[in-house]
Design a protein around this nucleic acid. Sequence first.
DNA 1: ACCTGAACACCGTTCAAGT
DNA 2: ACCTGAACACCGTTCAAGT
Lengths: 238, 238
Amino acid sequence: MRADAKEPRSRRERPAKPALTRAGIVAAAVEVMRSEGLERVTMRRLAQELDTGPASLYVYVANTAELHAAILDELLGAVDLSAGRAGGDWRDRLLGVLTSYIEVLFEHPALARSALVARPSGDHYLDLVEAVLALLAEGGVAPARAAWGVDLLLLFATSTAAEQSTRDQDAGAQDDWDALTGVLRAASADRHPHIAALGDTLLSGTGPARLTWGFQALISGLLATPVPDTTGPPGRRS
Amino acid sequence: MRADAKEPRSRRERPAKPALTRAGIVAAAVEVMRSEGLERVTMRRLAQELDTGPASLYVYVANTAELHAAILDELLGAVDLSAGRAGGDWRDRLLGVLTSYIEVLFEHPALARSALVARPSGDHYLDLVEAVLALLAEGGVAPARAAWGVDLLLLFATSTAAEQSTRDQDAGAQDDWDALTGVLRAASADRHPHIAALGDTLLSGTGPARLTWGFQALISGLLATPVPDTTGPPGRRS
DNA sequence: ACCTGAACACCGTTCAAGT
DNA sequence: ACCTGAACACCGTTCAAGT
């Protein structure tokens, strides 16, 4: 399929060149991402895939960031929200939903990073927010606190994925990681006594164990921390 | 200064073209970032600034990501670690250090994002980790928990900056934000009852208030959440 | 209204050749 | 050893012109 994509494509090979639509563009983008990675989902590459010029895409998509956001929302359809409606403790079910969210992001590395930049606002993202809010409400978390808590939980999940994700795919990311572990292990007891004392403990634990611990700490933390009284005005984030 | 940079530069104008060094390259990179933003800190732009060709830089810097990481560590020198040694409750002092860290990141937007990708491992970053660990130790947090906690706290700070940062600079980022707020406000009571019920509460609070709340929740959370027993092996993150 | 060719203004990285 | 010219293989986005 990839070899095929490199050959110049004549009209005859694809007789029914489909009309451009936003949905068609996003679908093609998802396809290219699955086969070649998000870094290949460029306006030019996509135009080539759709047998047109890059300028044509701008009729349907404002820019590359918006395109990536659309891909993300598409993929968020795979988040297993039913985990929230299963039996058991609400905390465990919340953990299940968040874990499903992070698994989707882990599968598609670079996408988590673009989610931090271009905030998603599609239907599937809203469904996720709704599911988390429902679980927090079930757990008796006060509305204002739940409102801030959902942000905290999703930010943690998204940024953990953004951070971890690179390591698998990117060549240089593993080097960075190795550099960091090396430097932590070599910390001088003079300048960095606590780092030196902890040694390998700083690097201990598997990814999943740390992740679960993080989610649990966050849930406990938001249960324990009241939001300030002055939450009245619709306030914008600075 | 920028107009000047666009003019072709003859040898005579810069008679003592300094020898290339890694430190010199990083210093020039910081300068370009301050005046033109991180997105202009490219190998080619930097080579132009240093009056050479892009290939020359690869003798001292492995790639663009490494260059950005070096810039970040340089800037982390401005983090006010003395906040950790002042008087008062250890939690407040920890908050002070973390706030100083995030302020540095807020000043230089895109850098927080690259910190998520290319993990920093410079001296200044180690100093920061050391300072946070010292405060956690002072608060009586057990070593294993402090080891995981420092990651949690710094990840939250870094990703919050990465997320917020775009809004100020990037044109499209504000649009994304507007799209998200619009969509939250317009949520249907049928499909998204909790979102609809919360309304503006979801968007309530100023940036600093949310940030402080987040830090406080994290600290309370890590105090309340024991790490699993199986933390023995040096384990690698999956 | 929708689509596009062509252009503008860039990128990172490599490599053979020079000093 | 260090430095570089030139090339390879790309980018996003705009705009005037076409249908």
